[in-house]
Design a protein around this nucleic acid. Structure first.
Length: 816
RNA sequence: GCCCGGGUGGCGGAAUUGGUAGACGCAGCGGACUUAAAAUCCGCUGGCCGAAAGGCCGUGCCGGUUCGAGUCCGGCCCUGGGCACCA
């Protein structure tokens, strides 16, 4: 009698083996083909959630599959350890963020180990450790020297009651999350990284990244938002400086009937000095949070400034407005408005009684009424004087040239992408390595003084960074002149840490350089897996940082991630699992009840990886039942005594059929795991094969031999998904080499061959019958066999056959 | 508002390049085993008509292309992600 399946025993034993054999620690072996398999590292919140389990299981399956292909696989893990939750917890519980964070890391590491992931823990990274963040401080100072970082004013959400800067997440319906006070937009000086210097390269390389999903590449293209247009200068009455605007539609220039500037624009500020109404309107514009979604969805409002610009072609006066939909951060903070040919301008003009002028007509000559609806397509110029009759391209060139000749404008490429603001007015982050001196200005901290260590023993009050009140941190001598100076108290955006950690896993202990020669062996990452929510920011910043490191001579790699898989969320009752909704399922509990393999199997089986996964307690039980059946199938098979060697020449039809199923399944699962990342169908195929094995009632030597072959194949192929039970079953099947060190099963091509194939017969595209035909039959013979089918004849008789379409191996369609 | 996804039985999903819609699993129903229950095993399971053979309908909605559309094209509806300080 065999022992029943006990996951807790099986899993402890397999994990002990991996630990003692150091199965997952890898070095740099130039003779082996490397495979670097990485997941987006977690924020150490303290508890693993189902989203973590899903993404880490996906990655682990890929890592283990690639190992079975003979690759030298690195799968590291670490902690994205800086961030707001630690400050919030500190504020709430009075624990310093560092202590809270390190405690959480300990708990989460144990949880990950319980799931049996194949991590090389010797390379663990914790981003809040000085030996990690010192290198991003160092890179920042290098970027400073190259002019890749600079300081400028930019907008933040300001809570006027708590006197603190709020993250967008901390603004609820325009109010501070703790104070409830209406949030204001406020300008403060902040540090920026010049990602726009790499805009073209980041854009163009997307065309040469076959390993990334098209959707992510499209999102990044649109985010970078390259456009070709013209910069035009409009003289403004009473101003020395002209007002410059950028437009992608210079062909509509003669249709400009007003202009608008952002609330923060200097012209608006000047007008506000003499006009309390304008001042009040600008104040009102600033009473919103700074997110683009808010700005784009709020009611479009504006006010005339009482001054005019001069139209550069017609010389007519163009009234100047201040409007809440113009963004100071995009382009020049001013726009020319063409209500006839722009949706938003049209609505604004209608609302405020501004003129709407048609200057573009449809190329086809169709009649339009510009007063009813804006015409935004490209067309032919009208009402534009000497430019009448030109199409878009000709008008673009003619107008651009005219401005270039007079020096009042130029062709310009513009990007939607903005430089990356990295300053955060928070404590729990990497200090920005800058010292402010009254005489020398902003001075980067010299390399020998790095890292600038964040003091870890602090009291968090919730109102601003505690660093500001720590003279021992702030007061410092200027590195240039030695006079009294002040240290920067802002810290880096946590995206800075996650923009280069993937490279550091190659050499986490390098203490004389950011990266060493080991990075040349491991990078780029061959397979990167993480949430679709990171499709733009994290992935774009990482691509940027990789290039900055390249240009610093640290690596020759430009693209950090060769292949990308973006996995969907885990839902319960149609909603994302969250404490607020009370629909959280704790992985720990489930692992205690069913074991890690059941949880892993369910995660892989329940949905394709890119799609959201609907949690189901019954589905988990189904996975558990399958593993019990799997266990019993192997145990029963082995309990029946020794298995004879397989003699393929001596098989009957049923035995041949099982062998065919075995080798077809190997081919399918290999394709599903290796090429398609289709784990759910891989599991289904393994289940089908096991069902076929269980249906086989054949105690003959040959019958037991083909069953043995099938069971070995299932154990090997499921071992990436359920590694613990497969570890045990492989030993049970009589092997001494553990399954972790085995290769993927070989396909016997001769087992796949078939004498006859079944074809579907259609008449006019509708299924009417099935026929068995020899595998080698030609189209005429197939057509005749198909037409001979009794049911097919009923639909063909009395009609003329117009065409017979044969799709080899699939179907015959008779068109009558 | 803008950008990118998704929508198929009672449920999760399959259908890989335009070629058998519903693989695999869950739930349900029927049966075996059991004193009984649990567990396990076997069978059935998109809707409608039919005794059966078989037929008709069916992949969010409307229209189109094709011998053939879940898959391609046009227009809509619903829903998820992102929108630069959540990570």
């Amino acid at each position: 009698m065999s022992t029943p399946y006990k996951p807790e025993v099986v899993e402890a034993s397999a994990q002990r083996h991996w630990r003692e054999a150091r199965s997952f620690e890898v070095d740099e072996d130039p003779d082996k083909e490397k495979f670097y398999c990485l997941t987006m590292f977690p924020y150490p919140s303290g508890k693993l959630h189902m989203g973590h389990v899903r993404v880490y299981t996906i990655s682990d399956v890929i890592a283990r599959y690639q190992r079975m292909q003979g690759k030298h696989v690195l799968q590291p893990m670490g902690w994205d350890a800086f961030g707001m939750p630690a400050e919030n917890a500190a504020f709430k519980h009075g624990v310093p963020p560092a202590r809270w964070t390190y405690a959480n890391i300990g708990e989460m590491r144990a949880q990950l180990d319980r799931l049996g992931y194949a991590y090389d823990w010797s390379r663990e990274i914790t981003t809040c450790r000085p030996d990690y963040y010192r290198w991003e401080q160092w890179l920042f100072t290098r970027m400073f020297d190259k002019g890749l970082v600079y300081r400028k004013n930019s907008i933040v959400n300001w809570d006027p009651v708590d006197q603190t800067v709020l993250a967008n997440e901390q603004v609820i319906d325009g109010r501070g999350w703790r104070s409830g006070a209406p949030v204001e937009r406020r300008e403060i000086p902040q540090w920026f990284m010049r990602i726009t210097a790499y805009a073209d390269e980041l854009l163009e390389e997307l065309d040469r990244m076959p390993g990334w999903p098209d959707s992510v590449k499209t999102m990044q293209r649109n985010w970078i938002g390259r456009s070709e247009g013209v910069e035009l200068s409009f003289d403004v009455e009473g101003e020395d400086q002209p007002l410059t605007v950028y437009t992608t539609r210079p062909d509509t220039l003669m249709g400009v009937t007003f202009m608008a500037v952002a609330a923060e624009h200097p012209l608006a500020a000047r007008a506000a000095k003499d006009d309390p109404g304008i001042a009040a309107f600008i104040d009102e514009c600033l009473q919103t949070d700074a997110s683009e979604a808010t700005l784009e969805t709020m009611e479009k409002k504006g006010m005339p400034l009482g001054i005019s610009a001069v139209h550069p072609l017609s010389g007519e006066d163009v009234p100047l407005w201040v409007a809440n939909f113009v963004l100071m951060s995009y382009g020049t903070g001013a726009v020319m408005a063409v209500p006839g040919h722009d949706e938003r301008d049209w609505e604004f003009a209608k609302k405020h009684g501004l003129p709407i002028k048609q200057v573009i007509a449809p190329a086809g000559g169709a009649e339009i009424d510009i007063q009813e609806q804006a015409f935004v397509d490209r067309g032919v110029l009208v009402n534009s004087g000497e430019y009448d009759g030109l199409d878009f391209d000709a008008a673009f060139d003619a107008i651009a040239e005219r401005f270039e000749e007079t020096g009042r404008g130029r062709r310009a490429v513009n990007y939607r992408l903005r430089d990356w603001g990295v300053s955060r007015q928070r404590y729990w982050g990497a200090p920005i390595p800058i010292i402010y001196c009254d005489d020398c200005g902003a001075v980067p901290v010299p390399e020998e003084d790095l890292p600038v260590v964040l003091p870890e023993d602090v009291d968090v009050t919730g109102a601003g960074s505690p660093l500001r009140d720590m003279p021992e941190f702030v007061d410092v001598a200027c590195p240039t002149c030695g006079e009294d100076a002040r240290r920067e108290t802002d810290t880096f955006d946590t995206f800075v840490e996650s923009s280069w950690y993937f490279a550091r896993y190659a050499c986490p202990d390098a203490d004389t350089a950011m990266l060493d020669e080991r990075a040349a062996y491991w990078t780029p990452v061959d397979q990167y897996t993480g949430g679709i929510e990171h499709a733009i920011l994290h992935l774009l910043y990482s691509r940027f940082f990789q290039r900055v490191m390249r240009d610093e001579g640290l690596t020759e790699v430009s693209e950090p991630f060769a292949r990308l898989l973006t996995q969907g969320m885990v839902l319960k009752d149609g909603a994302k699992m969250s404490k607020n909704k009370g629909n959280v399922v704790d992985p720990q509990e489930l692992i205690g009840k069913y074991g890690a393999d059941t949880v892993r199997l369910f995660m892989m089986f329940a949905a394709p990886p890119e799609q959201s996964l609907e949690w189901s307690d019954e589905g988990v039980q189904g996975s558990y039942r399958f593993l019990k059946r799997f266990w019993n199938a192997v145990a029963d098979h082995m309990a029946a005594g020794p298995v004879a060697a397989l003699d393929v020449a001596a098989l009957n039809d049923e035995q041949k059929a099982l062998r065919r199923k075995t080798h077809r399944t190997i081919r399918k699962i290999d394709d599903d795991l290796g090429r398609r990342s289709s784990f759910n169908t891989a599991v289904a195929a393994a289940m089908e094969l096991l069902n076929a094995v269980n249906r086989m009632q054949d105690d003959s030597d040959a019958g037991r031999a083909v069953v043995h072959e099938a069971l070995e194949a299932v154990v090997l192929m499921l071992s990436p998904m359920t590694p613990h039970i497969c570890h045990a079953l492989w030993l049970e099947l009589g092997h001494s080499t553990p399954v972790i060190d085995r290769r993927w099963p070989e396909i016997d091509a001769s087992a796949l061959e078939l004498d006859t194939v079944e074809l579907v017969v259609q008449v006019n595209g509708k299924l009417r019958g099935r026929v068995q035909v020899p595998a080698c039959a030609d189209e005429d013979a197939i057509g005749q066999l198909a037409a001979a089918d009794e049911n097919v004849r009923r639909f063909v008789e009395g009609n003329e056959i117009r065409k017979v379409i044969v799709v080899p191996g699939r179907l015959v369609n008779i068109v009558v």
